[in-house]
Structure formats: C-alpha cells, structure tokens
Nucleic acid binder design. Structure first.
Lengths: 226, 226
DNA sequence: CGCACGGTTCGGGCCGCGCCGAACTGTTCC
DNA sequence: GGAACAGTTCGGCGCGGCCCGAACCGTGCG
C-alpha cells in the first residue's frame, strides 16, 4: 500500500538519494562502500538501505559477511533518472582532493549509467546512431529498420518477442546535459562492448575506458571517433 | 540548487502529493478548492502551495482574491506521472458518499490527465490508433507516416519545426493499468475534441463525457466504439 | 461603509525522522 | 581459539516538518 508520497519519501533524504545515484552505475555495492561514499556511519547506512529495500527500490544479495545491494530493476533506475533529470543539482560532495577530481574527469568522459553507457562516450555514440539513421528522433525516439538490422549484425541482438522493455529510450546525461540512449538497445550495446573488450572498467567507480580495439570497433561500426 | 533529495521531498508529503495528483487534470485550482480536497486548513494549504511553487513544480496566477495554481509544465506533469506510476496506490481518500462514488465512476470512464485524455476512453483511443497503424509500439512508441498524415487531415495538427516536446509519449493510466497516449499528439487530440464539441466537462473535476457528435467522430476517424 | 470571504502570516505544539555510539552477531583469516 | 572485520540492533538525542488556530490583509459585494 505504498503511495506517491511514500514513494517520493524514499528519495527525500540526502543519504538515500546519494545511495541511489551511486547505484545508478548498475553495479552491486556493499553497505560499507555506500556508507563511506555518503559519509555516514555503517549503522545509518544499514538502516537506510533496509528502507530502500522495503520500498522495493533496491534488492539485496548476501555473500559471506557482505551485503550487496543494487537497483531493483530498470523501472527503479528510470525513476531515479527521472528525478535526477528534474533536479538541476546532483547530490554529491564536491571533489576534495586530486584523486576525486581525476575520477570525476574519467566519469565525465565515459561511464555506465545503470545498464547502458553515459558521459561524452554515451552521447557521442547516440549521436552517431542518429547520424547513421539507426535511430530516429523526429518523433520521440525509435529504432529504424536499418537500426534493427544493425543490432542483429553488429551486436547479435534480436528483440525478444513480446518484450515489455522499450527497445530504446532516452536518458538525460547529467554531465553532458544532453540525452544518451537507454532501453534494451543501450543495454545490449553496453553488454557487447564489455564482452568484446571494447571497454574496461577503470578504478572502482562507474568510470570506463575505451580500449584500442573499442576505438576501432566504434569507428568501423558507427563512424564514431571516441 | 535543488537536488534529487530536495526534489523528491516536494512530493514526500501526503498533502502535497494529493495536490499534485489533483492538478494532474491540467486545470488551475484555487487554494481553497485544494485545501478542501485534501482535507486540510486553508493556512496549511497556503504554506504547502508556496513550497511547491518555490520548487518549480507549480505556477500561480492571482485573480482578484483567488490564487489559481497549476502544474508548471509538461515536465513537471511527467514527473508526477512517473512517481504515480511507480506507486501502486493513489493518495486519495476512499469515496465517502454516493456523490464521490459516482464521480469516481465518471473519471474511470473518461477524464483528462494533464493535457491529454485518460480513463477507458484514453486507452481505447490509444488502442485504436495502434490498430489503425497511426502509432507504432514495436520499439518504444512512435508516430508513423500514416499517423502524421492523420494528424494533419483529421485534427489539422502539424508538428512545429524544431519542437522540443516529443510528438507522442506513453502515460500509464492508473485506473486501467495500461498506457494511454500523451505528448503533443495526446494534447492535440484532447484540444481538438473539446474545440469541436466531441467532449464536454462533466461536474467540477477532471471527468469528461463523450457527446453524440464525439461518438460519431471517434468511430469515423479511428474506428473506435466509445 | 461594513461585512463576508479567500488567502496569508505567525507562533506553538507535536510527532517523526535521521543520525550517532555502544553493544552484539556472524564471517573470515591466522 | 582468537583477532579483525562487515554488518545489525537499539536507545537516545536533536532538528525539522506538518499542522492548527488566531490574527491580519485585500477584494468584492450589498
């Protein structure tokens, strides 16, 4: 029996908001990592995580003495994105030291956003797909016939029959302030890129790096210079 | 300098949530009407409305001794919709008397949702547009070439060049639990329907009624039986 | 002019929430 | 077994939010 007010209340606290935005990288974090990230005590983090799980925004997985949490699903991620897109500012402390600044720079270049790609890389790839006529943006956003063929050829991805998830969806990039591509297409592209060694994680956060093979692949498949 | 937590906080109160959901009918309400609707004192309503306006969710217009408020724009409406769609329950008191029940029934049949149509009418028209091939739902949602022609012929609507607003967008209908159509298309259809006497407001809420001329028009233009 | 009315402001009361530290449970590693 | 570590539970504290009533301000109407 949750209501709009209760749902909104889940995000109406700085600590919980920071958790959700951190988890937008789509990976599972431990309770301790999130506590440090948000600057609160482990006991506080534990309580707040329980509330988010209770509210259905997160799910947990226990492994040994660790508690891993992640966003409950694409709907939850979309809701966090919608709120973040509407809020001009992001709940994140200003960088305090050089390490932090470097990490921010890496994230602005390329990062994951839930299960797809964001940052300059994300919007560059999105633009390339539009330029190549794989995605049409003249009325909302949609995958063209050419785009569908490309997904099958280049990524080996076919939309499952009766799929509930939209094939493509826009997601406002909050470093670029322009949309990048999410939905099943965004997820397939991101997954394929990791599978084939086009990208690798860098550091412990959501930042990623384009490998030489990736640069070649993005140029060959999309005409994108990254 | 608002943040995700602050933005969510705007909706994290029962009274404010009730206000926003009432205003989803797209019309301007006076402060007193909203106070009565939510069951709070005028002083409380006044304070809460000021917070929502401060937060950019609502805008106000003063006329004589009345303060009219409405949702600030389509983005704000979309955010309320996103939260409402995620929250299984709606913040509205159960109907207390026969009048209330009748009104609920009328709203379930046909109502406005911000600037487009909802209820059984809304989803029926959406289904009809899909069936007729005016709107394609196989990859997200998009208006087809035939749909564009239909908009021009039947409604006299042309998408403005360089329009920022998506031509079509889905909006989850919370009485039907299925999507209906929003975006510029939804707004154009709704506006045309009122203009041409296909619909009229019934009662003081968001409920609407299909006129005989409307039933004929919906059948002729969309093959929909409403 | 005076009253009714819609709305606002202010002070005060109350409750809930978010946070912490301390004590505790359970896991891993030596 | 013992130490280190991740996480949880609980009591308590303090702040802030939400609401109300009372007083007040403008507008509109008789």
């Amino acid at each position: 029996m949750s209501s709009l007010a209760e749902t909104a209340g889940l995000f109406a606290d700085r600590t919980r908001a920071v958790f959700c935005q951190a988890l937008l990288d789509g990976r599972a974090w431990t309770a301790g990592e999130l506590a440090r990230h948000a600057g609160v005590r482990p006991s506080t983090a534990s309580e707040q995580l329980s509330r988010l799980i209770e509210g259905g925004v997160l799910t947990q997985e226990r492994q040994g003495r660790h508690r891993y949490v992640r966003l409950a699903g694409p709907e939850a991620a979309a809701l966090v994105e919608a709120l973040a897109a509407y809020a001009p500012e992001v709940d994140r402390p200003r960088p305090r030291n050089l390490r932090e600044s470097v990490r921010r720079g890496a994230e602005a270049r390329a990062r994951t956003c839930y299960d797809h790609l964001a940052g300059r890389l994300g919007v560059t790839l999105a633009d390339a797909m539009v330029t190549r006529g794989l995605v049409a943006t003249d009325s909302g956003v949609a995958v063209t016939a050419a785009g569908r063929a490309w997904l099958a050829d280049a990524l080996g991805y076919e939309q499952p029959r009766g799929a509930r998830r939209p094939l493509v969806r826009t997601c406002l990039d909050w470093t670029e302030r322009r949309p990048h591509l999410a939905g099943a297409l965004g997820a397939a592209l991101c997954a394929a890129a990791f599978d084939r060694g086009w990208l690798r994680r860098v550091g412990s956060g959501r930042a990623v790096q384009v490998t030489p093979a990736g640069a070649e692949a993005f140029h060959r498949l999309l005409g994108a210079a990254v």
